[in-house]
Design a binder for these strands. Structure first.
Length: 412
RNA sequence: GGGAGAAUACCCAAGUGGCCAAAGGGGGCAGACUGUAAAUCUGUUGUCAGUGACUUCGGUGGUUCGAAUCCGCUUUCUCCCA
């Protein structure tokens, strides 16, 4: 019996949204050695969970014997993709973009094996920055029909609100990227989020015209909740893969708290848990789903932060939600012992720990009984911390039901 | 290039001289109920200080005892005409 076609694997796990010629893709994927690429826009200094799905696809493909190219948009990042966006994207400086590109490279290594050219990482700034405008519009621009571009769904929204020429060029540049990668690395396929469909088709078209060669495209579903909103967003912003930006414990908790309706989808997209096991979780009803959620949180955390961290998070979560617990991967704030003598308001600590955006917010929380010191609700605005609140120089500060923060005491 | 209109808090959106820190909705946060879920209900949602002060309605300069609201200039955006 042959090994399962990677296309079917991806399809079964629910990654695939749209494809060009499906038969051709299945056929090509059945033979290893396909080079494909996915673009990343370096608009932040860390990847977030939205990128994570993309990285999972790359990982699956790589394990099936294909070669991924992670294309970092150092060049296109200076323009900003208008697809599906309702407003003009902020233009970033070259320095910031370069910094972000470097950070991305580090983070991608957690899932993608870059050794011995098993995967490549390229930056389109390398070929876009030096482009000659006249040559470019003569060679590439001549291949595009403005009528068709305007008809594309992704531009429609912007067409009504206004679209600058700068952004309008994005599609050409992305198409050019594909051509460039095809020529230099024999890259035959581009993958991307479903919002990239138009841009991907543009590249395929361009290669057909310039090289008379059929290449492939495939998009996968964006990670959304069952209610249709984008996943990975919290009130504080995105859920980042960088432990400095999103503490592992918070990361774990994010997945532990996904809605019932989203658990199975997430298990399929964000973990390597085998399908038979996932199907079993799918049978679970009601509270039983908590088992699946715990598994999801553990597996995702393990991939991103390593097994050790995942274990720690898991133990701590279990401890915290069934009695007092301790946590090494919780966000932490350190106080000096000497500070206690002069009286430290709980309010002060909340502010220090950045659990509240303002002191007024802290007052509100205390008034409503939403702040707890070691599981005891704080009732008085003026409550201070004393040495008694600390056990082995550590105490747990809690906001609401699920936001935990560790406060340490130091001798200094 | 000519003309018309708009800019309000996280988002949408009321407010056209004092009763406006600014309606309503969404979102957020907290409480109750739960399964660390959803739905529902309640409270809350500028800042600093405890019953008051300060900053805010694109920017700026005026008028006025008093401005988000009136006037001048300016910036940005949208629409119509070229």
């Amino acid at each position: 019996m042959n090994k399962e076609n990677i296309f079917d694997v991806l399809n079964e796990r629910g990654y695939i949204a749209q494809t060009t010629n499906e038969e051709a893709i299945r056929e090509r994927l059945s033979r290893p050695g396909l080079t494909f690429y996915i673009g990343f826009d370096p608009t932040a200094d860390s990847l977030h969970v939205g990128h994570f799905v993309t990285m999972m696809v790359m990982a699956h493909m790589q394990r099936a014997g294909h070669r991924p190219i992670a294309l970092l948009g150092g060049g296109t990042g200076m323009i900003g993709d208008p697809s599906g966006r309702s407003d003009l994207r902020q233009v970033l400086s070259p320095q910031v973009i370069q910094h972000n590109v470097d950070r991305f490279r580090e983070q991608m290594k957690i899932l993608i094996d870059f050794d011995d050219d098993r995967a490549l990482m390229v930056n389109n700034a390398d070929w876009l920055i030096g482009l000659n405008y006249i040559e470019f519009i003569r060679e590439i621009g001549s291949q595009f029909s403005v009528n068709r571009m305007l008809a594309a769904e992704c531009y429609k929204q912007r067409y009504e609100k206004g679209l600058t020429f700068l952004e309008f060029n994005y599609m050409l540049l992305q198409a050019y990227d594909f051509l460039e990668l095809y020529r230099n690395f024999n890259c035959e396929m581009q993958l991307g989020g479903d919002d990239q469909w138009s841009n991907i088709l543009a590249g395929i078209d361009l290669i057909r015209r310039k090289e008379s060669k059929e290449v492939h495209g495939m998009t996968f579903n964006l990670l959304t909740t069952s209610e249709g909103s984008k996943m990975g967003k919290t009130a504080k912003g995105a859920v980042w893969l960088d432990p400095e930006k999103t503490a592992p414990f918070d990361f774990y908790q994010y997945w532990r708290n996904v809605h019932d309706a989203d658990v199975i989808t997430c298990l399929k997209l964000l973990t390597f848990v085998p399908m038979p096991e996932i199907r079993e979780y799918g049978q679970a009803q009601g509270a039983e789903l908590n088992v699946a959620k715990a598994r999801l949180a553990y597996e995702v955390t393990k991939i991103v932060h390593g097994e050790e961290q995942a274990e720690i998070c898991k133990k701590q979560a279990e401890a915290l939600f069934s009695g007092p617990g301790r946590s090494d991967s919780m966000p932490t704030t350190t106080l000096r012992k000497s500070d206690l003598d002069s009286g430290v308001l709980v309010l002060d600590v909340l502010e220090l720990a950045k659990l509240i955006p303002s002191r007024a917010e802290g007052r509100r929380l205390i008034k409503q009984g939403g702040i707890y010191v070691n599981d005891v609700a704080v009732s008085d605005m003026r409550q201070t911390l004393s040495a008694n609140d600390f056990d082995h120089d550590e105490m747990i500060l809690r906001k609401g039901k699920k936001v935990f923060h560790r406060v340490l005491l130091s001798d200094e």
